[in-house]
Design a protein around this nucleic acid. Structure first.
Length: 273
DNA sequence: CAAGATTCCTGGTGGC
DNA sequence: TGCCACCAGGAATCTT
């Protein structure tokens, strides 16, 4: 389930195989997704060249040579591949974009939560629809002071706030769960009650975990695969996500879980205060 | 206006 | 073995 490290992993791989390629043809096999895919067929993509691939939060933008870009989001089961047409179309591959080197950019999504749209790009290099996103976790803007200010007076659980893309983008259930565990913060606490010092700890651990996950090529729980089909190895380093009922690796208590913002949230009652 | 609930979708899982 | 309820997840859209 792609969060920021998975999007970064996909983006780096796509940059190598897509940059400089010209689009020859577009085929849409599944019109009804979360957002309709049919506009892709009428967007005048053939003849356009892909000039760059950049990430913002969990989104990727493949910029074209006409100031537009392909905006991608992978939902929880989105997979992209760039391979030849010799491989038959898989059941949940919804879009083929044929490239001038003979390969096909294939967009797959089993649970149909993914997004693939053409947008005008602004001066930021991204579509205007991304302007609402909060700070980038791996930029210098994501500081303890920023987080403490964003959390101020908020009554929602700190974990829900950490997953709020309008505050900081790209941190989903896996990495929010892990970061709060390592920082020793109970995910159920009201965001506004978390101290500035604790916010600094959350930021430091979240950044460290995201960077480590990128080095590992992301986290594969069930669906995630990078462009070449490889799986993310960070799953082996997860300390608490999905481990309810197991022994806490830090204090030996039994890991518990609860529902926060509609998401299962594992935590250790012994060492997350 | 903030917070919480609901919705979309499919495949894997576990109970009986 | 089959059937079915349930769960996973991001983000938009609702209800309170």
């Amino acid at each position: 389930m792609p969060e920021l490290p998975e999007a970064e992993t996909i983006g780096r791989a796509l940059e190598k195989v897509l940059c400089g390629r010209k689009i020859c043809a577009v085929e849409v096999f599944t019109p009804a997704m979360r957002s309709a895919l049919t506009p892709l067929e009428h967007a005048g993509l053939p003849g356009r060249r892909i000039v760059s691939v950049r990430r913002r939060g969990r989104y990727l933008t493949a910029a074209l040579d006409d100031n537009r870009g392909l905006l991608m989001h992978f939902g929880m089961s989105g997979v992209v591949r760039v391979e030849s047409g010799d491989v038959p179309r898989r059941k949940h591959e919804h879009v083929f974009i044929h490239l001038d080197d003979g390969n096909i950019f294939r967009f797959e999504c089993t649970r149909r939560f993914s997004l693939l749209e053409v947008h005008e790009l602004t001066a930021t290099g991204f579509p205007a629809v991304l302007d609402q996103l909060g700070v980038e976790p791996l930029s210098g803007d994501f500081t303890g002071e920023y987080l403490a200010n964003a959390f101020s007076r908020r009554k929602i659980p700190v974990k829900v706030a950490l997953m709020d893309n309008a505050i900081v983008c790209g941190i989903g259930n896996i990495y929010a769960t892990e970061a709060l565990f390592v920082a020793g913060i109970d995910p159920r606490r009201a965001a506004g009650e978390v101290s500035a010092a604790e916010c600094r700890r959350i930021v430091a651990e979240a950044v460290r975990i995201l960077q480590e996950a990128i080095i590992c090529g992301g986290t594969t729980i069930s669906d995630f695969k990078s462009v070449d089909g490889s799986e993310g190895k960070f799953v082996q380093k997860l300390q608490i996500y999905g481990k309810r009922g197991e022994v806490c690796p830090r204090c030996g208590e039994i890991i518990d879980s609860c529902q926060l913002g509609g998401r299962t949230s594992a935590f250790c009652p012994g060492c997350q205060k």
